[in-house]
Design a protein around this nucleic acid. Structure first.
Lengths: 352, 352
DNA sequence: GTGAAAGCGCTAACAC
DNA sequence: GTGTTAGCGCTTTCAC
């Protein structure tokens, strides 16, 4: 067995599973310099002579040596990792393509800062202390997606000094910085578009206990009242994706002759589901019922009919969250950001 | 400004943004014991008197103190974090619900081991050195999803001693352990089912350069030849999700009168897309064309027609990957695992 | 049952 | 330009 100081086996047998690793002292010895020189060379410190640097870097490369992060973090008091917290009603909710797109863009933005991403999900049933990620020094800060009803918990955390940026809706008493789409505008655009498409009785699909959805509902109702329509509360359905109750509910509307000719769903996934439920009952989209979704997920253009939707700029969103976090980590004051939402018209609301 | 040793402000002003944190020495001082005692008390070491332990734990709680992981890791040579590497053709591919489900279950399994999950994506364009995650000591091992064409790179890594478990297809010369669905069986079941549903000319949708898809294709062709049917290579389409070429291709088949009455798509997302394309051209599913997808994503039951699909057990898969990794980290020998695939019949292949 | 002291692998004064 | 040295915050022998 090789000694700890020399991970390479002393016999001829290949022992790739050795847990020993090279460390700076090894490189220093092999290169005939001190560890300070190795440290500086690998960090690209200009104090080190070019030739020395190259030699050491080549050596490190050939040994697959990489600086131990725990040791470096401890010493530098610098953490190259960001925490990403996904709060969801259930484990399922991580599967919304919109969230995914957001995660992807956050990851891209972090990549550019050479930061890693530690992902954790928080569900109501298993409400783990995600702040521990920060308190244990594993991450430099927390990016939170989906504030849900944890608003006051988030406020507490932020007030306690946790660097934090949240995706969601700005609440009147939020202390923490929020990045979010303009939900009121999104709801308004959806309502306005359905009205202009000739809809007289429009259903609203989404849970207004969720802060973002509440804003969308407000914008949506505004669009109706602006043209003298009113919203029939019987056409409000707090749908969760995957809810089998949906088909039943649609069936009920039809059976009870509660008429409707438009639907605003607060997610594209919900919109797809309702379109299927309508088709099942023999109703045609957009002929009988027009549908507007939310998020503009890629799948929207790959179904039939293609789906009209409210687009949220996920790339901007991801970048903005990371940018705000960066400011916060530099102890700058940080404001919330509201991003514009736009309507993308497709077949599901076409005039027929 | 408070001194580093006492994070709490000495004046009356609340300064939540202080970067100072309590550390063990602080707790030790406040509790009137040594840091060894604090360390042991927090670790639940039975050597410590119950009363002392409780006092110290209460103190830690009240100060939101958590042990610094970098320091603990450095000392204990133990890393509470697992790396999850998503290899994708594009950034998009992280958005496949199947991958997501797998990620979710891996996260669950890691949670049970009190491990965190460091997520990183690797795309061909930005082929970063994901092994660095391990070599820098940031993660205890690497779980890799989507081996793609990086097979030999993975072999090298594993041979070099990197603890690694891969989701995908077992290759003849894989040295690394692989967890995967039984792709041959999956393909066979799909082919058999379509044949039994009366299909005579079945198209195959998926890129056989991908190892998993290749196996599915083999199983699929076997099912056809078993009953004396042959596969018309003109009905092979290496579709990527989001490919706008798809509609064009379908159109071409129809225009050129290349007949087909069944489609086996190697992902549900692809299946949804093709169903939309068929509907657009006025073809009915399942009346004119029957469709089988792959992965059995939740959305499959929420579209119209509901989608027949090959289910892969993602929960088992996630657990298996973590279990294998655990064995590997205990230096046990690790075998690959093939999980059963099953067919879930729904409306898209119903006899009409 | 608790404390003193050494050291995990690295970085950064400070010295030369 | 490079080496020496101290110390990041913790865990764990070893001593009592």
């Amino acid at each position: 067995m090789a000694s700890r100081k020399d991970p390479r086996p002393t016999d001829t047998l290949l022992t790739p599973k050795s847990n020993d690793r090279y460390q700076m002292a090894d490189l220093a010895r092999l290169a005939g310099v001190s560890t300070s020189t190795v440290s500086r060379a690998l960090a690209g410190n200009p104090l080190i002579k070019e030739a020395t640097r190259q030699k050491i870097q080549a050596l490190a490369q050939s040994l697959n040596y990489q600086v131990n992060q725990s040791a470096a973090s401890l010493r530098k008091r610098d953490i190259p990792t960001m925490g990403l917290v996904i709060m969801g009603e259930s484990k399922q909710s991580i599967s919304d393509p919109f969230i995914l797109s957001l995660i992807g863009h956050i990851a891209d933005a972090l990549d550019e800062l050479d930061m890693n991403m530690l992902l954790t999900r928080v569900t109501p049933d298993r409400a783990k202390n995600f702040a521990a990620l920060y308190e244990t020094g594993q991450v430099a800060g927390l990016l939170v997606i989906g504030q849900l009803t944890n608003h006051s918990q988030l406020n507490d955390l932020y007030n306690r000094g946790t660097p934090m940026v949240v995706w969601g809706a700005r609440m009147p008493d939020s202390h923490y910085p929020v990045v979010g789409g303009d939900n009121f505008q999104g709801g308004f655009l959806a309502g306005q578009h359905l009205v202009q498409a000739g809809c007289k009785r429009i259903a609203f699909l989404g849970d207004i206990n969720h802060p973002e959805v509440q804003m969308r509902h407000a914008g949506f109702v505004k669009a109706l009242t602006d043209v003298g329509q009113s919203f029939d509360p019987r056409l409000y359905m707090p749908l969760l994706f995957g809810d089998t109750a949906l088909r039943a509910a649609i069936g009920q509307w039809i059976d009870q002759k509660i008429e409707f000719d438009g639907v605003f769903a607060t997610s594209d996934v919900a919109a797809l589901t309702i379109i299927a439920a309508l088709q099942e009952r023999g109703l045609k989209v957009p002929r009988d019922v027009k549908v507007v979704g939310y998020d503009d997920i890629p799948l929207s253009t790959h179904i039939h009919p293609t789906l009209t939707s409210i687009r949220q700029p996920t790339e901007l969103a991801g970048r903005a969250m990371v940018a705000l976090m960066r400011q916060r980590l530099q102890n700058a004051d940080v404001d919330s950001i509201t991003l514009p939402t736009t309507l993308v018209a497709r077949e599901s609301t076409l005039l027929t």
